[in-house]
Design a protein around this nucleic acid. Structure first.
Lengths: 72, 72
DNA sequence: AATTTATGTAAAATATTTTTTACATAATGT
DNA sequence: ACATTATGTAAAAAATATTTTACATAAATT
């Protein structure tokens, strides 16, 4: 009933030569802990961070993050 | 040299029967002041709010918000 | 001209995101 | 087996987003 922000970060990291969380963090000027939390969907990133992450993978934002209905 | 989050909210509001800031705010469960600030790019919204706004206009997020190099 | 509606703005309070520091475990390499 | 690298997690502080309350002006309506 409620929409949630989902992401494909882990999949994209692994597809990109197994980029580590720390490497991704460095590329977006954030910390490893932030990447870890966002990837685990502990919280959603700011729009700016979301754009930076999508840019790293050369994907449109909506290929990385989706706003979707989730069962409970 | 720096990228910034730009938006087309005003344009989209006007195209949608001149939807007011207050009406948009209500549809996304935010306040009129928040819509006003985001529209004026005083700050960028959370990713979730950004998705909600895009949904109201039936547009993909990247049609509403762009992360672009800005002169100056 | 007077009234109502829409927008701009601001300060303080609250909520959320991000950093910093730190430790623990899992996975990989030597 | 040992050492190194990657990931998970947590608590407190800092930064940023959002609300609340309030007032001011602009624009539209009667």
């Amino acid at each position: 009933m409620a929409k949630k922000v989902l992401n494909n970060i882990r999949k994209l990291r692994l597809e990109n030569n197994g980029m580590t969380q720390a490497e991704l963090a460095e590329k977006i000027d954030a910390t490893r802990q932030t990447v870890n939390a966002i990837e685990a969907a502990k919280y959603a990133p700011s729009l700016e961070l979301a754009f930076k992450i999508a840019d790293v993978f050369g994907e449109p934002l909506e290929m990385v993050f989706e706003y979707k209905l989730t069962e409970k």
